[in-house]
Design a protein around this nucleic acid. Structure first.
Lengths: 331, 331
DNA sequence: CTCCAAAATGAGAACGTTCTCATTTTTATG
DNA sequence: CATAAAAATGAGAACGTTCTCATTTTGGAG
């Protein structure tokens, strides 16, 4: 069907080696030859077969971004999507393609885990999937973790400082004079959940404020669940004057409930979210939130990964990014 | 580094043909052989090299989803992302992988366009990129268009019925008794823009309502631009009592401006959006909007594409999906 | 014009599979 | 137990490149 390097070679009178060079390393070929070769290629509609190329170079120039199934759906996740977008750009900048992975893609018929597609490297986001990652390492494919470290394996990881973020958020509410502060905590991975909870608690302790367990809720981090939960809380007496929500989706769900109940934000109830996702700019008033620059996360993770791809072993460093409070209208 | 089929063959005493079969077509191999082969594979950490496989089968089991650069950033686009998510699922269900494409990924050193990666098929979303698509066809790679047709080439396309959607939206406002209706139109592709505008205009005509050009605005479809534009409109006198916004992002930006100005939605100003993206559920009150089921779009496009991949030529049918009004709180 | 170094080109192996076709082994039938 | 049919296995070519190394061509200095 489509023509090969041999057809071109025959057509233009050069050897396939020279044709190959004209595409892979144009400066190694004389201008005259290049011209003829490109003309033939155009005529015969030739484009190099990257599969055959990958076969011998042992590089596919593909990387994968895999999100743990718990964080599904991957692309719609407001926290991960801007990171993914950055990784895509970084990959393209280096002439790499990006593959979006899903777990089942990697199960061989013999029940071994494996990266089914040949990938030069993988970024793994969200909860750590140990068997899969071990399989990747066994095939010595570079891996960078995102937002969940795994110290034992010494894998490089880029993550938000969840504890510091929760501290920032809670401290901000305390400074604004709130003495009764609730917590709406999303059911994320254990690592993330605990760090954010500890941050929250440590500020209450240090400020001598009580931790009222009636207003500490763990919930699925969806709009609807948060809305329902907040509606319930508003029904009870004694509702706190402020809430720290451990992500923006929860905060925005809570906002809807509060506004629908006719209470004012921030006068009656103040809110702080987490992530500075797209959502925080959509609502009115804008959501005060904790930002960990997703572009920076994506960029650092990509750089780390490409360094490993090019340079062999990478240090298993954990890079913990400092969060920043973005004040908008909800406090 | 990693072991090949020959290492396994040597280790377990079978030929490489049989080892190959054990992974590609397990039922064609005796249980005894399978067991031995899998044991060797596990021991030597073997996984089939899909590149080598693709080389001979001439199938990569990869498809690409490419969004025209104007619609960038691709992953964050609230309209395309749920479609992309569906395509990802459909691909995985068939054991295919999904690549996210970007334009520059396909430029050869001789300035020919080409799909640089070997892809079994491509879904092309947004404005039609003619030279690229022609290049794909020249390589006889199946292509399905999304939301922008190209009749001349007879390419299959799945798109929203933009005209009908705009009619629904505007008619809804007319029925609610509005007589002065403004338009905030996003600068999408010519096809989409015109269809939506014609829908809007035809309803005004049929209802005998005026089209006041002061309140017909074309703008970049971003939150910030829409917010600024609406703030400006509110400043002028005579502001209409309703607006049709040609996507949700614009509508939500407008909402922010209206609420900030202290006007009430929908009592003072009513709004209808377009897309039923997740934004419409985030805001309070929820946004009345026009829905074209993105999962259906993604599914149909995928089915079309895989039919072409499996069955050769596909008919260049244009499938136009009927939109539906979703009424929420802004009308 | 001769010679040498540098640049350009070519020959052919290698990459790790699958596939076709022939051969061997197993199973079922009488 | 003999035989035919079916199932399982194996040998080796083929897929389309790149890469190494050898050879040829080019260009400049003397």
């Amino acid at each position: 069907m489509s023509s090969t390097i041999i057809d071109i070679a025959r057509d233009c009178g050069y050897s396939k080696a020279t044709v190959s060079r004209a595409f892979a390393k144009p400066e190694a070929v004389s201008p005259k030859a290049r011209e003829k070769i490109y003309a033939s290629a155009k005529k015969l509609n030739y484009a190099p077969n990257v599969i055959a190329r990958a076969m011998v170079t042992r590089r596919t120039e593909n990387i994968a971004f895999i999100i743990h199934e718990k964080q599904y759906p991957a692309i719609l996740n407001p926290f991960y999507s801007p990171i993914l977008e950055t990784v895509l750009q970084e990959a393209n900048r280096r002439n790499y393609s990006l593959f979006i992975g899903a777990r089942q893609d990697m199960l061989l018929p013999n029940n071994q885990f494996s990266i089914k597609r040949q990938m030069d490297g993988v970024i793994f986001a969200g909860e750590v999937d140990k068997p899969l990652i071990q399989a990747l390492r066994a095939q010595s494919i570079p891996v960078v973790l995102l937002n969940n470290h795994w110290e034992l394996e010494g894998l490089p990881c880029v993550e938000a400082d969840h504890f510091a973020g929760a501290v920032e958020a809670t401290r901000h509410l305390v400074r604004r004079g709130h003495t009764r502060i609730g917590l709406m905590a999303g059911l994320f991975s254990k690592q993330v959940r605990e760090a954010r909870f500890q941050g929250f608690r440590s500020v209450l302790n240090e400020a001598g404020l009580p931790l009222d367990t009636r207003f500490v809720k763990e919930l699925e981090p969806t709009l609807e669940v948060a809305d329902a939960e907040m509606t319930r809380l508003l029904g009870e007496g004694d509702c706190p004057t402020a809430f720290f929500c451990t992500n923006d989706t929860i905060a925005v769900g809570a906002m809807k409930a509060i506004l629908r109940a006719g209470r004012r934000i921030p006068q009656d109830i103040a809110l702080v979210g987490f992530d500075d996702s797209y959502l925080s700019r959509v609502v009115e008033p804008g959501l005060t939130t904790i930002r960990v620059d997703p572009e920076r996360m994506g960029r650092i993770a990509s750089e780390k990964l490409f360094a490993m791809i090019d340079g062999g072993e990478g240090a298993g460093e954990i890079i913990r990014l400092k969060p920043e409070l973005i004040q908008r209208g909800t406090t």
